[in-house]
Simulated scan of single mutants.
Amino acid sequence: MAVLAEIGREIGNWIWFIIAGLLLLGELLLPGAQLIWLGVAALATGLVVPLLEIGWQGQLVLYAVLAFVTLLLGRRMFPRGPKASDRPFLNRRTEALIGRAFVLREPIAGGVGQVRVDDTVWRVMGEDCPAGARVVVTGIDGATLTVRPEGTAA
């Protein structure tokens, strides 16, 4: 114990600045935004230790308390969770087609046909229907739309 106390007196509060620097550097290298709060706690500990002149045990307790507080504040200031998007189908554009009705370009024969969606022709699968019939998209399988005739139950 005397050795640790001697080391603590020799290093002083610089150890907390070194720890803070390593944690903040780790935040840059690792995802998650958790190390930044531990780094802030280590920095605060390094600033407070000379004012309080406490031993290494007190410093560890102070750091633990500050780490807990900064983590709580960080979670409150920057809550996690999905944010509502103004464009929910940006990277899932085909899902935006579900529920929409289109006119068949070619008849569905043998369960396969074609429909024009805006400026693109899509392959469709569903029950047989003549060309010009209106169909509703019920699902998507890769680049193939699953459809049913409009007016029929899902």
Rank of each mutant, 00 (worst) to 15 (best):
L22S: 12
I19T: 11
P107G: 14
V69W: 06
D86T: 10
A64T: 15
L29A: 09
L104F: 06
I15G: 09
V49L: 08
V40P: 00
T144P: 01
A131Y: 11
G8H: 06
D118G: 04
G32S: 12
A42V: 02
E27G: 03
G26D: 06
F17C: 12
A44E: 05
L4Q: 04
W37A: 00
G99S: 04
G111M: 15
A84W: 03
D118S: 06
G74W: 12
V121T: 10
R100Q: 06
D119Y: 13
E6R: 15
L28H: 12
M1S: 07
L73K: 07
E150W: 08
G142E: 15
G12Q: 07
P50F: 06
R116D: 14
V147M: 02
V48S: 04
P130G: 11
P31F: 14
L51M: 10
A33Y: 15
R105H: 08
E106H: 09
G126Q: 00
G74E: 04
P107D: 06
R9D: 07
I140T: 07
I108L: 04
V137T: 01
F78D: 03
R87V: 07
L60C: 15
D128K: 13
I54M: 09
E6Y: 12
R76M: 11
E127S: 09
R100K: 10
V49K: 01
S85I: 12
V135D: 00
V65F: 14
A96Y: 08
D119W: 12
G46L: 00
R75F: 13
Q114Y: 14
A20D: 02
R105M: 06
Y63F: 14
I108N: 00
G151K: 12
G55N: 04
T70M: 15
Q34M: 10
L52G: 15
V40K: 00
I15S: 08
P82R: 12
V61F: 11
F17R: 06
L52V: 08
G142P: 02
R75Q: 06
W14E: 05
A96M: 06
G132T: 08
T146M: 07
G12K: 05
L22C: 15
I54P: 03
E53Y: 08
A143P: 09
L35W: 03
L30F: 11
L43G: 03
R148N: 02
